[in-house]
């Protein structure tokens, strides 16, 4: 049994090795140990979605994942997603539609929305809402966020 665990994982394409406290969740690991402050910690018990990041290609709640359990994993945060250009159009749509106000939910919202672009390119408005239902936004009232995702899906459809 150990209160500290050594892990080696890939974060946004870079290999990192760190000794982490067993109680450290992935978001604190990213923010405090790696200085990647794009991922947010809101409720820290799985309800708000502000902490949404990718682990091994699939979105997860970063606040409900132990950093210690991620030896060998591949993590992508909003920083990595942005640098890759994968969702540049979606981010432009967020700006154009004013889908980010205070911005606290935005990194998690974009991570979850990117999941729709990847796995459900034909998603209807109702399906977009359903997919984002685990991501809370206290500012926008969601309409503009759904507009931004829907607009991006349509634009991509048109260019295929």
């Amino acid at each position: 049994m150990s209160a500290r665990v050594e892990i080696t994982l890939t974060v946004n394409g870079e290999r990192v090795t760190r000794s982490v406290e067993a109680r450290r969740h992935l978001i604190d690991f990213l923010r405090l140990d790696l200085g990647l402050t794009g991922s947010h910690a809101g409720c820290e018990h799985g309800v708000c979605g502000a902490c949404t990041v990718r682990v091994d290609g699939e979105i997860v709640r970063g606040c409900l994942v132990l950093a210690a359990a991620l030896d060998g994993a591949e993590v992508t945060t909003i920083e990595g997603l942005t640098d890759s250009g994968e969702v540049a159009d979606l981010q432009d749509a967020f700006v154009a539609r004013n889908a980010a106000q205070c911005g606290f939910c935005s990194p998690g919202m974009v991570m979850a929305a990117a999941d729709i672009l990847r796995h459900h390119p034909g998603a209807t408005r109702a399906e977009i809402r359903e997919h984002l239902s685990g991501n809370y936004c206290r500012c926008t009232g969601y309409q503009s966020i759904v507009d931004a995702v829907e607009g991006t899906l349509k634009a991509r459809e048109g260019t295929r």
Partner: peptide
């Protein structure tokens, strides 16, 4: 500890108090 989607949330609330998490995943 399996997916942790209940256990880790209850830890945050101090609803459970194990000393050691054994990752079976």
């Amino acid at each position: 500890l399996a997916g942790g989607q209940t256990l880790l949330a209850t830890l945050a609330f101090r609803l459970s108090d194990p000393k050691l998490l054994v990752d079976i995943t």
